[in-house]
């Protein structure tokens, strides 16, 4: 399990424990990863987040086009694995949860405890802290070296 901010861990651990989910990805609506469990490489996590956020955004637009209220959740049930994709509101804006589960769990169990999880997250969200400068002023030198190394120049 990896979380961007510590206060997410408690609710996320409880959710994993109760739901027996295999993979969990928590992201902002623009696809930035907030927390994850079960993925190997950080970059794969990002692909999943980009795709998950894309699906949520496009189904949201579909709902809007058809004049229906926002869809609550999307569920895909495969033969070996199911997926739940669901948006929820937090004091930090709308977040998205992507949950993969196997036959040891079920859509019903995952939805039940996901609801509890989102309630806990909404209640636990601390106020946003003001952010000062993040990087050193002379970061350009390191950036250039990184990019040169990255492009093999």
């Amino acid at each position: 399990m990896r979380v961007l901010e510590g206060w997410v861990s408690g609710p996320l651990s409880r959710f994993l424990d109760e739901s027996a989910a295999r993979l969990v990805l928590l992201m902002t609506s623009s696809g930035q990863v907030v927390a994850q469990h079960g993925f190997t490489r950080s970059v794969d996590v990002m692909s999943a987040a980009a795709l998950g956020a894309g699906i949520m955004a496009s189904t949201g637009e579909l709902a809007h086009l058809m004049g229906s209220p926002r869809f609550g959740a999307l569920v895909h049930q495969g033969t070996e694995q199911g997926l739940l994709l669901s948006g929820f509101d937090t004091p930090r804006g709308r977040w998205i949860g992507l949950v993969a589960f196997g036959p040891e769990s079920s859509v019903g169990i995952v939805q039940l405890f996901f609801q509890q999880f989102t309630d806990e997250i909404a209640a636990a969200t601390p106020p946003e802290e003001q952010r000062g400068p993040v990087l050193a002023e002379n970061f350009e030198h390191e950036l250039n070296a990184s990019l040169r190394a990255l492009f093999g120049r």
Partner: peptide, 23 residues
């Protein structure tokens, strides 16, 4: 159709592991 997506890891900048998501 929708987007292309490529995550890359730049390395350490001012002590931060820096990643870019290119869309």
């Amino acid at each position: 159709l929708f987007f292309d997506f490529l995550p890359i890891e730049l390395g350490s900048i001012s002590g931060f592991t820096t990643r870019f998501q290119l869309y």
